[in-house]
Design a protein around this nucleic acid. Sequence first.
DNA 1: TTAGGTGCAAATGATTTGCAATAAT
DNA 2: ATTATTGCAAATCATTTGCACCTAA
Lengths: 137, 137
Amino acid sequence: MDFTKLLNKHDLKITQARISLLELIEKENKPLDSQFLIDTLKQKFKVDKVTIFRILNVLTEHGILRKLEFGEGKARYELNTEDHHHLICQSCGNIEDISDCNIEALEKEIKQKKHFLVKLHTLEFYGLCKDCQKKSN
Amino acid sequence: MDFTKLLNKHDLKITQARISLLELIEKENKPLDSQFLIDTLKQKFKVDKVTIFRILNVLTEHGILRKLEFGEGKARYELNTEDHHHLICQSCGNIEDISDCNIEALEKEIKQKKHFLVKLHTLEFYGLCKDCQKKSN
DNA sequence: TTAGGTGCAAATGATTTGCAATAAT
DNA sequence: ATTATTGCAAATCATTTGCACCTAA
């Protein structure tokens, strides 16, 4: 994905930190926390953690990233692409994507019955992944 | 609700702090954050914030409370009753309950296709409540 | 050149921990 | 009497802020 073009479109300056962060998030392809991003990017070049937090905030405000919380007391970030959700293993912590949640029907019902206008929703599943079920944890 | 009996059933001691906290959460009937609980309970009797945090943790571990996060950088807690979800107004912050989400079909599909065993899910809707739509915020 | 981006130090806010004192059973 | 619970102080963790310096456009 061409992040230079993307940042340009949003009138955001092209910097090593921004490009590298976006490339890392794209490569890992799952919701990452700030600590992972800080540790990984610091190995590649000189960056301060404050810079990472500021980048995460701007990119989220511009809708380039999506901020998620899985009850861990910290946020995670992923590329804000199509509507999708997550399968979060409570044993090993692995996170898998799923799509096609088909919540539109529910949202329509909410609009009619509650007169609440849904802008976005979060839907996360917690349980045991295939492997952890075998380990009977 | 008889919280004395409930605490007994879980082999948790009956204390003023635990009973008052549970009664407050029951009375308010929406997800409350620690600060609100601390402020409100401190007016009624002498309690330390640490005690409140510890109570929230034990009660959550015992499944009496459910811990929720709405991307505010802090947790909220509610009585862990039936499966239900929330309509969170992005303008005024009001939180309304909804039930009957009918996610079972999706969970069944996840089990078959992904071999992931769903233990629990979160589903939250963010948008504008009836009143805030009028104010065109 | 100049507004936006970054680094460093220090602040904030939510939550946790250690330990001694206290209260519930 | 025994063990869980609480209070207080101090620590920790994620995240933010202020301000001077730097750099992409």
